[in-house]
Design a protein around this nucleic acid. Structure first.
Length: 423
RNA sequence: GGAAAGGUGCUCGAGUGGUUGAAGAGGCACGCCUGGAAAGCGUGUAUGCCCCUAAAGGGCAUCAGGGGUUCGAAUCCCCUUCUUUCCGCCA
């Protein structure tokens, strides 16, 4: 969430910038400022009262020791009567605090200046693109047909075991998954990221820290008995490593990478979007996460985007990078670049990565801070990106590389798969 | 799952109702000492919020989290949670 300090000091700017995300913040922000005023005044009053109480209590101790029982008794009565008024003040303050966080959680992050205007996906700007568009024959198959033909993925079996969106990978299909995961992790490590293996279920505090809770609760699977959530991305457990942490400036940027299975309920999705591997309830992904200083975070973002580009290039896929417009970017992001690869048989672009700078929006919830060279403590910037999500990469690989002799595996991946062709 | 013991600052560790935000030790930072280093000596070493704000200063809260008893709680009581040990179960 945005910091109160920034909102109160830059009210007009905040309202103006939120408009780019098509969020009308005028009313809610004036509400925030008003409630903050209430909070401050009740705290000032309460603190003053408590100071007086503390003083009196101390004097009672001294009077008792000095044997002045009657004076002590008088002071005791005085204190008792003062306490009543404090209860109301305390309640006011707590209520204001709670209301404030609730409201702040409903305000999205401010888009960076570089975010293009726009309402929807069509308004995103193509940043750059590369790779060679494959020329497929007339009878080219979509990946779900190919998966069946070569017995790589069994969607029906997944339905039997769990439900739609939980495919079973088999044989070379399963080995391809494993190869991609290792390929991505090795590349990330070589690029300087520390590999971590996080838990796949998280508590509510973690969900709240990265912004999945409270508003996106319906997108996560929830284990009611233990009140734990299945992670929708490794971003959640990995970023939460740094919840309530004060880092030293010289430790930054922190660079972590993690493979995890990801679980998403995807309520409300339908049609061609969910065909085959296009949208699943469980999928594999390697994530990269960075914690950085405000001064360096955009440099980090650039490095991350460049890094992801090397992956799609090594996989020899036609790719493009989109700079998301204000209307299409996520609630918590300040600037996002999406990577898409072209799925030749489906004749459509598939999103395989989303690389974002959240600036201090996540860090404020996480209380992830750093101590600068000047000893001052301030919020970090957090960033993350997929590097990469597997299913749509697999879809594009299968479709684009189909030949009469079978499906060709890109060179860079062969050491990982142990085979050059799926036939 | 059953039983027991615990959770104190960067770390270890003292502290069972009254100037305890917290002894002591270690670590770390700075200074002195030194040709340099070690040792030694000295100083400093939490976070959030509020008041004031230029700085300085002051106040409140925080000894796992929440609630309670009390004029006063790290210290007593209740709930939650986590850790450790033993038993049970088990990849």
């Amino acid at each position: 969430m945005l910091t109160l300090k920034f909102i109160t000091e830059n009210t007009d700017e905040v309202v103006k910038r939120l408009a780019k995300k098509h969020f009308d913040g005028k009313q809610i922000i004036s509400q925030v400022i008003e409630i903050d005023r209430v909070r401050k005044s009740s705290q000032t009053q309460l603190d003053a009262n408590l100071a007086q109480l503390n003083q009196l209590s101390k004097s009672i101790g001294q009077l008792m020791q000095a044997g002045k029982k009657e004076e002590a008794e008088a002071a005791r009565n005085e204190v008792a009567s003062m306490k009543e008024g404090n209860k109301q003040l305390e309640a006011d303050m707590k209520e204001a605090e709670q209301k404030l966080t609730e409201l702040l959680c409903t305000i999205p992050n401010l888009p960076a200046d570089e975010v293009p205007e726009g309402k929807m996906a069509e308004d995103n700007v193509v940043e750059r693109s590369g790779g060679k568009m494959p020329q497929l024959s007339e009878n080219a198959l979509p990946h779900w047909e190919l998966a069946k033909k070569y017995d790589l993925i069994d969607f029906e079996l997944g339905v039997k075991i769990s439900g739609a969106g939980f495919p079973v990978y088999k044989g070379k299909g399963a080995r391809l998954q494993r190869a991609l995961i290792n390929f991505f992790l090795d590349n990330a490590r070589e690029a300087g990221y520390l590999e971590v293996q996080p838990p796949y279920v998280v508590n509510a505090d973690s969900g709240y820290g990265t912004g999945q809770l409270p508003d996106k609760e319906g997108q996560m699977y929830h284990c009611g008995l233990d009140d734990l959530y299945l992670i929708p991305t490794a971003e959640v457990p990995v970023t939460n490593i740094y919840r309530d942490v004060i880092l030293e400036e010289k430790e930054l940027p922190v660079k972590n990478t993690a493979y995890s299975a990801c679980f998403r309920r995807e309520a409300g999705s339908y049609g061609k979007d969910v065909r085959g591997l296009n949208r699943l309830h469980q999928f594999d992904k390697v994530e990269i996460v960075r914690i950085d200083t405000p001064e360096h975070s955009y440099e980090s973002l650039k490095e991350m985007v460049d890094y992801v580009q090397t992956l799609v290039e090594k996989l020899e896929l036609p790719w493009r990078i989109l700079r998301l417009c204000g209307g299409d970017m996520s609630f918590t992001s300040a600037l996002t670049f999406d990577f898409e690869v072209f799925s030749a048989a489906q004749q459509r672009w598939l999103e395989v990565s989303s690389v974002s700078n959240f600036e201090s929006y996540q860090a404020n919830r996480l209380k992830c801070r750093y101590r600068g060279e000047d000893k001052k403590i301030q919020l970090c910037h957090t960033l993350n990106g997929s590097a990469l999500a597997l299913p749509r990469i697999v879809a594009a690989l299968l479709e684009n590389n189909q030949t009469p002799e079978g499906i060709r595996i890109p060179k860079a991946l062969v050491p990982y798969t142990g085979f050059e062709v799926i036939s």
